[in-house]
Design a protein around this nucleic acid. Structure first.
Lengths: 154, 154
DNA sequence: TAAGATTGTGGGTAGTTGTGGGTAAAATTC
DNA sequence: GAATTTTACCCACAACTACCCACAATCTTA
């Protein structure tokens, strides 16, 4: 059953094979095909994980990058660092995407891989890395976390 | 697989051969051929790298240069430095472009060469030069960099 | 519960891509 | 105008990638 367009939620475990392929949760594939879309952009996340955007989502980011000026060195660096690691990819007939060696090593991916829905994108994690990141967050800024609670009604 | 017209993202490693030829990532070639275009304009980048524009993009730059006044010495210098090093080029049947000795030496290119998609253009880098440039940016204005992160939602 | 459909995982193969070098045309020099 | 250098075009081949098929495990449905 499909949720709505471009909404990713849930957690799924898959295995990365010897060719660097990972399965995409079938629910996510359905979500995407409603939009006649099987193209993603995979890139480095801000934690040690990968971010996978559906093309429409990525296009929005790109539009914002286009507005930055090549005359500013900061702007150039920002565009470069954002665009540099972005890799377009489609899923194959079996529903898998290819990860480049560079992306695999960035996220320290081994055999078992966690895919997490992040509403507008998915994250690909090594289970151990995710655990580490979780523990780190627990320690710092519980106040900031609470502040978010005010902005978002659950 | 093609993204859309004139969008360049990702990082690719190629080798500069003895004749001064570098491969263009096949994804970029597809992007360009959608426009029935295999003509680039290569010029000096503002960092120590080369900028490669598809012809359409370059035409836009030219239009903007036309608007600058020759009465202003700053404007004159800007137009001169932008136009001066621009070299039109096409890729051969194998998908390679020729770099002139002048361009090669400007970017300090050796054997290994990095091509980076910058959304509206590509950059050609020597890996060591890029590393240097990265470190430089880290030092100056982290606040400005963070401000950009707020403007662009990833 | 059995049969059928869907999903996840592995591997083989044909086509594409990256890199080197050869040759003929064009440009440059003497 | 001949000789030499430079450039553009072509071919060859190795490495890699995308696509295809197979099959086991799981879920669905009657």
């Amino acid at each position: 059953m499909t949720l709505t367009n471009n909404t990713f939620i849930g957690e799924y475990t898959y295995s990365l094979d010897s060719k660097g392929r990972v399965n995409i949760p079938s629910k996510f594939r359905q979500t995407l095909s409603t939009d006649n879309q099987n193209t993603f952009v995979i890139t480095r996340g801000l934690d040690s994980c990968l971010w996978v955007y559906p093309l429409v989502q990525w296009k929005e980011i790109e539009e914002n990058l286009r507005k930055l000026s090549s005359l500013s060195s900061i702007h150039r660096a920002f565009v470069r660092n954002t665009a540099r690691y972005a890799t377009p990819s489609t899923y194959d007939k079996q529903g898998r995407i290819n990860l480049t060696p560079s992306l695999i090593s960035y996220a320290s991916l081994k055999k078992d891989v966690l895919i997490i829905g992040m509403v507008n994108k998915m994250e690909i994690w090594d289970p151990i890395q995710l655990e580490k990141a979780d523990k780190k967050i627990e320690k710092i800024n519980p106040e900031e976390y609470d502040a978010l609670s005010d902005r978002i009604i659950l």
